[in-house]
Design a protein around this nucleic acid. Sequence first.
DNA 1: CCTACCGATCGGTAGG
DNA 2: CCTACCGATCGGTAGG
Lengths: 190, 190
Amino acid sequence: MKVFARKDQIRLKAQTLFRERGYSATSMRDLADSLGIEAASLYNHISSKEEILQEICFSMADSFFSAIEPIVESGLGPKEKLRAATEAHLAVIAANSDASAVFLHEWRHLGEPFLSDFKLMRRRYEQIFRKIIEEGTLKGIFRNIDAAIAARTLLSATNWTYESHKSHRKTSAEELNEITTILIEGIITR
Amino acid sequence: MKVFARKDQIRLKAQTLFRERGYSATSMRDLADSLGIEAASLYNHISSKEEILQEICFSMADSFFSAIEPIVESGLGPKEKLRAATEAHLAVIAANSDASAVFLHEWRHLGEPFLSDFKLMRRRYEQIFRKIIEEGTLKGIFRNIDAAIAARTLLSATNWTYESHKSHRKTSAEELNEITTILIEGIITR
DNA sequence: CCTACCGATCGGTAGG
DNA sequence: CCTACCGATCGGTAGG
């Protein structure tokens, strides 16, 4: 297990730097410096700069899918299912704020065929939310809205939350709950 | 007026390239190529790469403020005011999709003192939405939510819409209306 | 994990 | 607006 320790350190530092400065503006020398080694030494653990980005993006994709899978397969009704899926999505972001920021903003620097794979994965993920919303709309529980637009709006609304997790402040459970409520029940009182 | 024509062309192309590849991954040679000139020739019209970014970011900030100012000063109630402000925000994005993408994602590449100015401006803008929500909460029209969180959620939820405006498809007025409704009234039917 | 180094490319300038 | 060019830095390799 110790074999991967250094590679994990590299990835953790890379997540932080890619998130702070962006993938393109982070040099391998920046990364090496932050680890206290020479840039050339990084290549004993990784094969390229892009490989790090690939691992961050696709392992986050895995985390997001794993989090909502049991909810999709549950017998919950549309409203409860949408709430649970949104909470699961927010929890993944909260647990991996740096990696989430990279996942959300730096994927476009992936080369092919990874870029196409990534876009496909992302669409499948959005589709899961869309399907839940469609079901709720069909049953008359949700408004008669375009499910694709509602899904993108909902996911986009969650995607600022990694900012609160920088280090100082943690978005609390109540705050995450509030976001979910706003999206599902709206801002106006009932 | 013709004097500024070339500089405007540079900025327009830069908006598109910065949006597609990111600021750091766009070189001055990329920009020059897309205009059919040499990289050195750009410097007859601009003084640095960052100057272009500054102009995009701050002129978009102006557009956003100008759009919601009359709404803030109107005598509308909290619900109508929040709806109008959200619609105005969405309209600015729809009218400037490339520049909006740059405004939203590339501002962190600004150097000081522009970076600090930008962050301050952005906070003031968010505060306007927060104030409207606070007013609605106080009057019991809105849920008893944290206004700062609601404001960020609302704005974040609108910030994917520039993607639809790439060139092929336009987010229709009804779609923008739907997004606003989801946020203010929620997904669930009343 | 380091020293030494590679070709390519970067933002930008001089001078016309 | 171009040619010619600058020093700095880029991702990455060879060889130990």
